[in-house]
Design a protein around this nucleic acid. Sequence first.
DNA 1: CGTGCTGTTGAGGACGATCAATGACGGTGG
DNA 2: CCACCGTCATTGATCGTCCTCAACAGCACG
Lengths: 251, 251
Amino acid sequence: MAAMAVVPMIIRFKSLGVAAQDLDALAQLTRNHRRIAAGSDIIRAGQQAKHMSVLIEGLACWYKRLEDGRRRIYTFQHPGDICDLDRFLLPEADDAASVQALIECSVAAIDRSDIDRLVARKPSLALAFWRATALDSCILRERLLNISAPAVQRVANLLCEQLARREAIGLKNPVLALTQIDVADACGLSPVHVNRTIQVLRNLKVLSKSCPIEVVDKRRLADIARFDGRYLSVSRLSNWTIDVAAIQRTW
Amino acid sequence: MAAMAVVPMIIRFKSLGVAAQDLDALAQLTRNHRRIAAGSDIIRAGQQAKHMSVLIEGLACWYKRLEDGRRRIYTFQHPGDICDLDRFLLPEADDAASVQALIECSVAAIDRSDIDRLVARKPSLALAFWRATALDSCILRERLLNISAPAVQRVANLLCEQLARREAIGLKNPVLALTQIDVADACGLSPVHVNRTIQVLRNLKVLSKSCPIEVVDKRRLADIARFDGRYLSVSRLSNWTIDVAAIQRTW
DNA sequence: CGTGCTGTTGAGGACGATCAATGACGGTGG
DNA sequence: CCACCGTCATTGATCGTCCTCAACAGCACG
C-alpha cells in the first residue's frame, strides 16, 4: 500500500484536533483497508453497521434513494471523512442513507468496540469525532442555503466546496472526479440543466472544456458562487505539524 | 417560574440518553434563565459566545442573513434544543448564523467552563451533546431532501417535522406559532407562494382556516409530506422515565 | 389615526424540468 | 475485429412551477 495515500486522512484528523499520540492509535486501526469499486456502495441503506468506515482514498457521496429511484446526494466525502458517523451515533434514526464510491476508493473499517474503547480513553479523539459531526452539519447548512440560489451559483458553490475540502487535506489538483449527473443530484437540478450551466461556466473561462470537471479560475468561481470557505475552517484547532517523512517510514 | 415549563427540556435531554444523575447537574445550571422578546436575536451572528444557550421555552429559528438582507432559515428550535451547539464546537467556522426568537422565549445560559467541566466528568452528557449535534444533522439532511420537492410537499413536510419534534417533548398542541413568512424562509419559497400553498392544504382539510397555522389532519398531512419521522427518533437511547411530580417539587 | 406587519389576490414572466434525439466513448461478447 | 450496449455529454423544444411586482384588507401598535 502506498504510504502517501494516507497523508490526506492524517491531515484531516490532525486538523480536527486529534492529539499526536491519539492519532497513532487511530492510525493503527486504519491500516487494513479494502478497496471499493467505483459505483458500488460503501454503506448500504438499512444495514446495521458493526464497524465505522473511514474513507482513506477516493471520492464518495452520501445519498438517499427516493421512492421513485432518484438519487439525492447530501454531500460528497473526501479522504479522512467518516462515512457513517451519524449512523454510528443514531443507528435507529439514520439508516435510510447510503454512501457510494464515485471512483475507486479505499476504506478502513474500525470495529465498534475499538471505537468505543478509543473514545472512552482518548478525549481528543472523542472531541474530534464530535467536531467532525458538527462540520458535516456546517456543510449541510451551506448546501441548504445554496440550493435555493440560481443554477450557476449553485453549481459554482458546490465546486468551490469540493476544491476547498480537497485543499484542506493537501490535494491541490483542480480536477474533480464528478460526472454532471453527480452534480445534478447534489444540486437538485436536472442533468440537462447542469450541462447547460457548466457550459456557461466554461464560456466564462472558469471551467476547462475537458470532460472531467476542471476548475481553471478558482478566484472567479468563488466570486460567482459567493463562496466564503470559513465555514470549513477548523485550522486553528491544532497546532502541531505533520511529519510526512515519518508517515512514509511508518506505513 | 412555572415548574412545568421545564418539562419539555427535561424530556429532550432524557431522550438523548442523559443519565438521571447527570441530568440533575445540568438542570442546576439551567435554573437561571432570561426571557427573550419575540423577534429579537438569541444568538447574534459574529459574536463570540462565552456561554452555551439552551432553549427552555418558546420557539426560535436558526438562520442566516444573506447579503441582500433576506433571511434563510436552516431549522427551527424547540424547548431542549441547544441554540449554539455547533458554534460552541467550531467557534471559528460557525459564526455567521444567528438564532432568533419567533415568540417570546426563555433561554438558559451555561458558562463555557461549566460545560467543559460537565462534559469531562459526565460521559453521558458528552455523548448526549454529540447525539444532539448528529440529530441536527439528520434534520438538516431531511430539509435538504425536501427543499427540492414541490411546494405543497415542502410545506407539509416542514409542518410535520415541527409537530413531530413538539410531540417528542410532550407538546401536543397542533397550533404552530409560525407566520407564513417564517415558513417561506425555511422552505425556500416566496411568501406569496406559501400563502397559496397553505390555501391548498386548507382546502384539503389538512389545515384549519385560522390564522396561526393549525394542523387538523395530521395523518393526511404526513401523507402529503411523505413524512417518515424515524429520522427524529432517538427514543430507544434511554429507558428511564420522567417523574413529572418530582420536577414540580424540585423547581 | 397613521404605521408597520401579516395575509390575500391578480397578472406577467423567468428559470428550470421534462421529453426526445444524437454523438462520443469504453467495455463486452460474438 | 466489429457489432452491440450502457453511460455520459450535448442540443432543441415545450411546458409548468414558482417568482416578482403590485395592490389591498385586517390587525396590533404606538
